[in-house]
């Protein structure tokens, strides 16, 4: 029992990330409002980014900028820079794709006058 608790204490952050990811997935599936779906997409993306960056974290490590007092002899003194780079570009791409999604949402609202998915489906079937 104690080992199980220790295991949970070491891995608790993964359960948090999975919870955030599932919140985003639920918003994308179950919410009918298109802007809520966009917010769900953003939450899903950030959960994956959190997962990546947490893999690169090291205990007692500093930020990944060279400290002349520490030097580079021991790589464990700095966090792993690779996940940071991958996720930095992913954040910028995510805001650009959010812009495209909002443009599509505005076009849908101009054509149908509503953002609710079920009402749009009804209007499409009615035609």
């Amino acid at each position: 029992m104690h080992e199980l608790l220790a295991e949970f204490g070491n891995k608790f952050h993964y359960y948090g990330y999975f919870a955030i990811m599932m919140i985003g997935l639920y918003a994308m599936i179950a919410k009918t409002n298109l802007l809520k779906k966009c917010i769900g997409l953003g939450i899903f993306q950030t959960a994956i980014m959190l997962f990546y960056v947490s893999i690169g974290a090291k205990e007692g490590a500093g930020i990944p900028i060279l400290d002349p007092a520490v030097g580079t002899a021991d790589p464990a003194a700095y966090a792993n820079p690779l996940p940071h780079v991958l996720m930095l570009t992913a954040i910028v791409v995510s805001v650009a794709t959010l812009g495209v999604a909002l443009a599509l949402v505005q076009n849908i609202h101009r054509d149908h006058g509503t953002l609710e998915e079920d009402e749009i489906l009804q209007r499409l079937r009615g035609k």
Partner: peptide, 20 residues
Amino acid sequence: FPRLGDPDSAPSRHLSPAYI
């Protein structure tokens, strides 16, 4: 998965020392 802040996890052992 590796525990949080494990300096010996697989991603931290192979490529990251070369970059740092």
